Simulated scan of single mutants.
Amino acid sequence: MRNGKAGLSKRIAGFTLVELLVVLSILALLLSLAVPRYFAGVQRAKEQALKQQLATTRKALDEFYGDQGQYPETLQELVDRHYLDKLPWDAIAERNDVWTIIAPELPLVGGVYSLHSSASGQAADGSLYTDW
């Protein structure tokens, strides 16, 4: 006999399998609710970033035309002449070299009148990214 207790074993503290399964099922339920909202939020943020890039670049094109009397030949010219800090980034396509460039109609001079996204797919509002 040790310590006056014969035949009694110590019980090890811990969780039972049922308790662990309950906790894991609750976590799975919470994740199934949170994950779709997270990815939808990320997509909305990308769409807003694309809209902002398009608006900023179009404004820079208008300012360039107002100052120079013609449109730039390339988007890089906007950067070189400090109308933009850097080339615009398409957050949906995740590239900065996939823009659809629209040239000005004659008699206007230059190579870039406006631009649209070249990303494929539809936005949350149902419009095509290429129409933006």
Rank of each mutant, 00 (worst) to 15 (best):
L87I: 08
L108V: 12
N96I: 01
Q53I: 02
L87W: 03
S117D: 00
A40R: 15
L21M: 14
Q48P: 00
P72N: 12
V42I: 14
S118D: 05
V22P: 02
E47N: 03
L54K: 03
T16P: 02
T57Y: 00
L33C: 11
G66A: 10
T57V: 05
L75R: 00
R37V: 11
V109A: 11
P107V: 10
Q43Y: 09
A119D: 00
V98I: 09
G14Y: 04
S9I: 11
G66W: 09
L30C: 13
I26K: 05
A40N: 15
D62I: 05
S127E: 12
N3T: 06
Q70E: 15
Q53S: 09
P72A: 12
D80L: 11
L17V: 12
D80V: 06
N3H: 10
R44Q: 14
G66C: 00
T74H: 08
R37T: 09
V112M: 04
E77D: 13
G4R: 06
L78P: 01
L30E: 01
N3V: 02
E77R: 10
I101H: 11
S9K: 09
A55T: 09
L24N: 08
G66Q: 10
G110P: 08
A40L: 15
A60P: 01
L20M: 15
L20D: 02
L27Y: 10
E63G: 00
A45Q: 12
T74D: 11
T57P: 00
G4L: 07
I101A: 11
A119P: 01
L20N: 05
D131G: 12
K46I: 01
Q53T: 04
A123Q: 15
W132P: 06
V112G: 02
Y65S: 04
T16N: 07
E19T: 03
L75M: 05
Y71F: 15
G41W: 14
S117T: 04
V109D: 09
H82G: 11
Q48D: 05
A123F: 13
D97S: 07
L33Y: 14
E77G: 06
Y129T: 08
V42L: 14
D85E: 14
E94D: 15
I12P: 03
R37P: 03
W132H: 10
P72K: 05
E94C: 06
Q53V: 01
L106T: 13
L29S: 15
P104S: 08
A93C: 13
D90G: 02
F64A: 08
L50E: 01
S32V: 11
K51I: 02
E94S: 15
R58H: 07
S32A: 15
R95A: 08
Y38V: 13
Q52P: 00
K5F: 11
A34E: 04
D85K: 12
V23K: 01
